[in-house]
């Protein structure tokens, strides 16, 4: 039964993209064909594909936030994270596969931001799927050219004394930004700290939330 999804919002607060009810496109047709052929030839199975999609849906920035919260509250872990982020993830039980992961720590004088100028490399296992803008032509081209302006558009206004370091991801090297721990968070538990760490803060286009305040840059 055709119906209009366009005014409905998903649980994550984003509009649904029109899906099943729109006319079949050439590329959708190709997806169905490839999927059926791969299942027929035993390369994969319908169940395996469904499980993969389910795992994708379940993944969000929670693992990344947990990593940051622990780094903020455990000096030894923080040192390990900065030295060997893969080992730190393993200690948390987060599988990052064969990727090399590098943690970038923001300080009073240095702000890190991550981009993938070539395509859309992103630490999915820690942050979920990349947002649309991360994959956009505008973000990918401008972040390396005028990072200060791009950050300002995201609501991150940095003083001239703060150096901005832009990190360009590759297929096998990913970055995660460790934002600065906000003031007034000394007594917070790790889950409370993690709740202050949004996706954008770990890309570098946002900051960690101050308890009780609205997040800068969304």
């Amino acid at each position: 039964m055709p119906h209009d999804h366009s005014h409905e919002m998903s649980p994550s607060g984003h509009p649904y993209r029109t899906d099943d009810d729109v006319p079949l496109s050439y590329w959708q047709q190709m997806e169905i064909a490839i999927r059926e052929i791969l299942i027929e030839k035993g390369v994969t199975s319908a169940a395996e594909i469904a499980a993969q999609v389910e795992a994708m849906d379940a993944r969000g920035p929670a693992n990344g936030a947990a990593l940051v919260a622990r780094a903020w509250s455990d000096g030894e872990f923080r040192a390990l994270l900065m030295r060997d982020a893969g080992a730190a993830c393993a200690q948390m039980g987060f599988d990052i596969g064969t990727l090399k992961l590098i943690a970038l720590e923001n300080t009073e004088n240095v702000h890190n931001v991550v981009v993938c100028t070539l395509c859309s490399c992103y630490p999915r296992n820690l942050l979920g799927l990349p947002p649309d803008w991360y994959k956009s032509r505008a973000y990918r081209s401008r972040t390396v050219r005028e990072p200060r302006r791009v950050l300002a558009e995201f609501g991150v206004e940095l003083g001239d004394d703060v150096e901005i370091r832009v990190h360009d991801s590759t297929a096998d090297m990913r970055y995660i930004v460790i934002p600065r721990r906000p003031e007034g968070t000394a007594g917070l538990s790790r889950p409370e700290l993690a709740a202050l760490v949004g996706r954008d803060a770990m890309i570098g286009t946002g900051l960690a939330r101050v308890p009780g305040a609205a997040p800068p840059g969304g």
Partner: peptide, 18 residues
């Protein structure tokens, strides 16, 4: 495309289609 000139960054996000 790194470094090329480009316009405003659209911040719209959508859930991926099935």
């Amino acid at each position: 495309m790194g470094g090329a000139e480009s316009g405003a960054i659209s911040r719209d996000e959508h859930d991926f289609a099935f």
